[in-house]
């Protein structure tokens, strides 16, 4: 399981499944979100950016949690694949965080009248971006990549204290940002016709992450094992 060669082959078989199901859910989600779901009675059409914004914000936290868990596993069991997962996830997570910030400020301009508001959730999302960038910077600063992977494992675990702060910041400082509308239990604050495309987009983004992280991890595996026999055989097989 932990063997890089085995991982390389299995990941290669899994990527098409992730990619195809990502495209299908993306098309369905965008179609339902942009054409089927009714306009909001207060926000009109501009709420539809939520179908990108909210899943991106979910992903920004989800990927950090994945990294923290992978960090714990790599520190305890020193599994190469989980070490690779952390750094492969970091830039994807940073991109989603950036996307959430950009779409949020695009939505904020017509709704709040300002591109940027120093509201708790916006601010913590920005801090999350800095945490991602810190992980990427530390990883690229350390020459020995195995050492670098262990260093960012610790950093991811330390940074994970920031995730609850993001989540509970809405309750801590009740500011401009509207409170969360999707809850697991209790009455839904959003109508089902709006919720379905949102959940579709949420699933779609997760599948995208799965596909991209596997691609990146495969490339990372090849780079790390570039001096081993199986990689040489692989490359020579490709050349033939």
């Amino acid at each position: 399981m932990g063997s890089p060669r085995y991982f390389y082959n299995v990941a290669g078989k899994m990527i098409p499944w992730f990619a195809v199901s990502f495209l299908l859910t993306l098309i369905a989600g965008i179609y339902y979100g942009l054409f089927v779901a009714p306009p909001d009675y207060q926000q009109g059409e501009s709420y539809r950016i939520m179908y990108i914004h909210v899943p991106a914000a979910w992903m920004s936290m989800f990927i950090y949690m994945v990294m923290a868990v992978a960090g714990l596993i790599s520190l305890v069991w020193r599994i190469k694949i989980t070490e690779i997962t952390i750094i492969s996830s970091a830039s994807v997570g940073a991109s989603f965080t950036f996307l959430a910030l950009v779409t949020g400020s695009l939505w904020g301009k017509p709704m709040w009248g300002a591109w940027w508001v120093w509201d708790a959730r916006l601010t913590s999302e920005l801090l999350l971006l800095f945490l991602y960038l810190g992980i990427i910077a530390l990883y690229s600063a350390i020459e020995d990549k195995r050492v670098a992977a262990r260093a960012i494992s610790i950093l991811a675990l330390v940074g994970v204290v920031n995730i609850p702060i993001i989540h509970y910041s809405v309750e801590w400082w009740n500011t401009l940002h509207q409170t969360s509308s999707v809850t697991m239990t209790g009455k839904q604050a959003m109508s089902t016709s709006m919720l379905i495309p949102l959940l579709l987009m949420g699933i779609s983004f997760k599948l995208y992450y799965g596909a991209v992280v596997l691609m990146r991890a495969r490339a990372e595996v090849l780079e790390r094992d570039r001096n081993t026999r199986w990689v040489r055989e692989l490359v020579e097989g490709e050349m033939k």
Partner: peptide
């Protein structure tokens, strides 16, 4: 502790530490 071995750890240090100082 994470950046002590690096030659130019200063900038990275502020990137790592300042977000955690915010609370």
């Amino acid at each position: 502790a994470l950046t002590v071995g690096l030659r130019r750890g200063g900038v990275i240090l502020s990137l790592l530490v300042l977000p955690l100082y915010v609370p």
